[in-house]
Design a protein around this nucleic acid. Structure first.
Length: 276
DNA sequence: AGCCAGGAAGAAT
DNA sequence: ATTCTTCATGGC
């Protein structure tokens, strides 16, 4: 018999502010492993889990790894300054004000690569379900939850495992990338600039401009990218009629510089929430 | 029944 | 180098 123990959780509190809304942060498309439960809001990242309880004035965070989640929530970045920097933009205006509680989380590169491979041409609820199945199949059993699989576990699984997850044609992408990544030096990749790193990511099967930019932004903290997906295309379809997604992405990244990733999140959240 | 989804690969031009 | 077609799955 195998005995599991529940990981020890330490607790810390975070004051609410106009520049940190947990729900906006979770619901703007950058993370898939979160859910409401009777315990609170459960968030799983890599092999860690946090349970957040919201009160009137603060968030109470119970985490398996306090340092990990303090970093994860990006408390060192001044979002008031980011909001101020983008709020004067005529086009973004309302979206920034609407979503100014959004933060861009610090997440794991490998988890982002596989998560956004799964995301392509897929529905968000299905993406979340598939990631859970992948974690249950290959991730470490942490007692109350399953860690996201390590690269070793991912590259050790055979094709039939991936075929059993309901990935459709993406099964080959995940299987192939799990092998390709064994030749990637993540430490080295961390040192590259955005354009150089994107060139490496584009070698991965199933990774095109949009998925690469999501990996760059959410996994490598490259905020000078502007992922253009179907929602962003809808936003700009009148202003840039006929312009292709990759061209629009390059233009918007150039326009907003290191605020591009934030601008994209405000717009995505605004469009997907209000759908105007 | 047909359309669509946080797109990208491979073929055709 | 650019456009067109196809891709597996499941919810609606």
């Amino acid at each position: 018999m195998v005995l599991y123990y529940n990981a020890i959780m330490t607790e810390f509190k975070v004051q609410k502010s106009p520049y940190f809304s947990l729900w906006q942060t979770l619901d703007c498309g950058q993370i898939f492993r979160f859910k409401k439960s009777d315990l609170g809001i459960e968030i799983i990242s890599k092999n860690h889990r946090a349970i957040v309880i919201e009160t009137e004035s603060e968030y109470i965070v119970s985490a398996t790894d306090e340092e990990y989640f303090r970093h994860f929530f990006d408390f060192d970045t001044d979002y008031e300054q980011i909001v101020a920097g983008l709020g004067s933009d005529v086009f973004l205006g309302d979206a920034v004000e609407f979503g100014k509680g959004i933060r861009i989380l610090i997440q794991d590169p490998v988890e982002m690569i596989f998560s956004f491979l799964i995301s392509q041409n897929n529905h968000i609820p299905r993406i979340k379900a598939i990631i859970e199945r992948l974690s249950e199949a290959l991730g470490e059993n942490m007692g109350d939850y399953f860690a996201f699989p390590t690269l070793d576990a991912l590259s050790g699984a055979d094709r039939s495992l991936y075929d059993s997850l309901g990935l459709g044609y993406r099964s080959d992408y995940l299987y192939t990338v799990s092998r390709q990544l064994k030749d990637f030096d993540l430490e080295y990749l961390q040192t590259l600039c955005t354009d150089e790193l994107r060139q490496h990511l584009l070698k991965l099967k199933g990774v095109g401009r949009k998925v690469a930019d999501c990996i760059l932004l959410f996994g490598f903290r490259k905020t000078d990218v502007f992922p253009v997906d179907t929602w962003i295309m809808k936003v700009y379809q009148t202003e840039f009629k006929g312009v292709k997604a990759d061209v629009l992405s390059a233009f918007l990244a150039q326009k907003y510089g290191f605020l591009a990733g934030f601008a994209q999140q405000y717009l995505f959240y605004w469009k997907r929430t209000k759908n105007v």
